[in-house]
Amino acid sequence: MEQLQWLAVVRHGQSTGNVTAQDAETAGIEEIDIPERDADVPLSDLGREQAKAVGAVLAEASPQVAVVSPYLRARQTAELALAGLDVPMVVDERLRDRELGVLDLLTAYGVQRRLPGEAARRARHGKFYYRPPGGESWADVLLRLRALLRELREDHPGGRVVLVAHEAVVFLVRYLAEGLSEAELMEIAHGTTVANCSISSWRREDGELRPERFNSVDHLHAEGTAPTRQEDVDDEPVR
């Protein structure tokens, strides 16, 4: 089977939920006050400008198709980044964010206070395999991504594809593209925040997808849309 020639993944722009979650973590409160359900959280004003800045990179890369998470912040990012480009956009629910179940809307402090048993269970199992009640582990998200990438290879042989999704998806696409082990992925993820509207990409050389860039925000600095403080927090409030 012919493989993809080029694969990229863009994390959505800064969302209103990112800002609220960071403020809650900084303030040391237990719960994040986000009125919308996770799927309906929109981009902030800065996030919209960041998404527009991605457009210049995509115009140069010339992807054949953009596959996008159904969550509003990702769809808005893709629409702004692809404006004026002749690139079809396909929404696929397998790119949705990791579901947090009972941990949803809790800060790290909130989980320790309200669900200490879950905090201990997560510490024991680790981020890769820990599944909160009603939620997903990173391994669960990988099942979705494996199926999606297999279909993309079949539907776009030798193609150029960009995904627009969420932080966990960026890490896990790297895991799949580079054939990493759990330990290698966790070493990369430890202490790393995938920046809003960062771009990670891989190009096929000698029959293998090889890293081209990871968590790159050069385009944001060029357009003056990089955040001035650490607002691009992990979509998962619980580290």
Rank of each mutant, 00 (worst) to 15 (best):
R144A: 12
V161N: 02
S69T: 01
D33L: 10
V91G: 10
D232H: 10
A21H: 06
S181V: 14
I199P: 02
D232G: 14
G179K: 05
A39H: 13
D23M: 11
E205T: 14
H12P: 04
R114G: 07
T192V: 15
A59L: 10
V173P: 03
L82N: 04
I29C: 13
P42N: 07
H166D: 04
A189I: 08
E178G: 05
A27K: 09
H190T: 14
L172E: 00
S69L: 00
F128K: 02
A78N: 01
N196Y: 05
A195R: 10
D104Y: 10
V87Y: 03
V169G: 04
V41K: 01
E151H: 10
Y109G: 10
R160V: 06
V65W: 04
V164Y: 01
E60D: 13
A139T: 06
T26W: 10
L176E: 04
G55W: 00
D23W: 10
G110N: 01
A147I: 10
E212G: 14
S200A: 07
D234Y: 13
G17R: 01
M1V: 14
Q64V: 08
E182A: 12
R98N: 10
E182V: 15
R146Q: 15
R131T: 15
E208I: 08
Q76A: 07
R210D: 11
F128L: 14
I188H: 06
N18I: 01
P157N: 11
T193Q: 12
E212V: 12
P63M: 06
L176C: 02
A139G: 11
N18F: 00
T192S: 10
P63Q: 03
T107V: 08
W202I: 00
K52A: 05
L82F: 04
E187D: 13
S62E: 15
A66F: 03
S69D: 05
T107A: 06
E208K: 12
V161Q: 00
L163M: 11
E184G: 06
D234S: 13
D33M: 12
K127G: 14
L152S: 00
L220G: 00
A78E: 00
L43H: 01
L85Y: 05
E49F: 03
M89I: 13
V19N: 00
T107S: 06
W6S: 08
A83W: 09
H156I: 12
T228F: 12
Q76Y: 03
E2N: 13
L148F: 02
